[in-house]
């Protein structure tokens, strides 16, 4: 069967940031203990006129441009988010129209907490592998919600990542994908509720760690891999502590996770979190290096991918801004402006 993989990628992180110190100050909480428990220093905040659709468009422009593929060649678009702008009306149609994609388009909005971006990637990958389509876009994008004064407010951020998948001019070949899914009520948001609820410490062991570990072990077994076979490892990043601990449990080193670990500076972009980490890894990966990506979505599930970078990757990314450079152009907001921009007290 033909090889399928990433033919272009793009990330978008809003310009605005708020520091955990500022959130703690405004609620009279101890910043040092929050930063220590979450291992997050600041998070990305969307502009007042940005949402999951606008950020998806910007990330996808980057991906299409890198892949040198016209929008009219895209035959599938799947968007994972838990903050679609409309409850009923697809984000995918807005993004498709803005990117001038083909009218003959398979598309849908997906929701699986923070996992739906990689779920999109599995769908597009399968469609290309089966010969249904030539190129497709898989997007993870979110303006994460969090209740004011909840610890989650220190991490819930905004961002988008777009993966152009195809079978020609591949920059990173997909070797295997696997998903591990159970019904685990660690984090949820009921209909018409603005903010999610979570199970506190329950989000750790039976939720995040179990799913990440089981998924990783299975995909490594499927690909006959050992931890040192991977140059780069990216896990979903709800905070700075969980992915580091999961990596340690699975036998990975800090060197393997450092390129994709961005949560300390940008927060948890939910559906975009692990995919932006992947973009950052693709900015640095060398030809033939293998990459492990495992996302996590509360509720719960984990999607695993094993990639191998091809010789085309270094040349293709050369004229594009790296994720880590994108992160340097920032404006820090006081809590009042952040609250107004995030419509927390509109």
């Amino acid at each position: 069967m033909k090889d399928v993989g990433i033919a272009g990628y793009g990330a978008y992180i809003p310009k605005f940031r708020i520091k955990v110190d500022e959130i703690a100050r405004s609620w009279g909480r101890d910043a040092d203990s929050l930063k220590k428990s979450l291992c997050v220093n600041e998070k990305a905040v969307p502009g007042i006129d940005e949402d999951s659709a606008t950020m998806a468009v910007e990330a996808s422009k980057h991906a299409l441009s890198m892949g040198k593929v016209q929008g009219s060649s895209i035959q599938a678009l799947f968007i994972g988010s838990e903050s679609h702008p409309y409850a009923v009306k697809p984000t995918a149609t807005i993004v498709a129209e803005a990117l001038r994609l083909s009218r003959g388009l398979f598309s849908a909005d997906l929701e699986f907490a923070c996992q739906a971006g990689t779920s999109s990637m599995q769908i597009v990958y399968s469609m290309i592998k089966s010969g249904m389509i030539g190129y497709g876009l898989a997007i993870g994008t979110d303006v994460a919600q969090a209740n004011p004064n909840d610890a989650l407010e220190c991490t819930a951020s905004a961002g988008s990542a777009s993966m152009l998948l195809g079978s020609e001019n591949i920059l990173a070949r997909i070797e295997a994908t696997y998903s591990f899914t159970t019904d685990t009520p660690d984090f949820w948001r009921r209909q018409n509720q603005p903010y999610p609820k979570h199970g506190g410490q329950f989000t750790g062991k039976p939720a995040y760690y179990r799913h990440i570990v089981e998924c990783t072990q299975k995909i490594m077994e499927m690909t006959s891999s050992r931890p040192d076979d991977f140059a780069h490892v990216v896990f979903h990043q709800p905070n700075g502590k969980f992915p580091v601990e999961a990596a340690r449990m699975l036998g990975f080193t800090e060197r393997q996770t450092q390129n994709g670990l961005l949560v300390r500076e940008i927060g948890n972009c939910y559906s975009a979190s692990s995919l932006i980490g992947l973009c950052s890894v693709l900015d640095e990966a060398e030809s033939s290096q293998r990459i492990l990506l495992v996302s996590y979505g509360s509720g719960a599930g984990a999607d695993g991918f094993v990639f191998e970078a091809t010789g085309l990757l270094p040349e293709a990314r050369k004229s594009f801004m790296k994720v880590k450079d994108m992160m340097k152009n920032t404006v820090y907001l006081p809590y009042e402006k952040y609250a107004r921009q995030s419509k927390k007290y509109a």
């Binding site: 502009g47 006129d49 940005e50 949402d51 659709a53 606008t54 468009v57 910007e58 702008p85 409309y86 803005a98």
Partner: peptide, 13 residues
């Protein structure tokens, strides 16, 4: 690409 306007919380963007 940004949001230009909206018809309140219930309307179109």
């Amino acid at each position: 690409f940004r949001k230009i306007s909206e018809e309140g919380e219930e309307g179109l963007i």
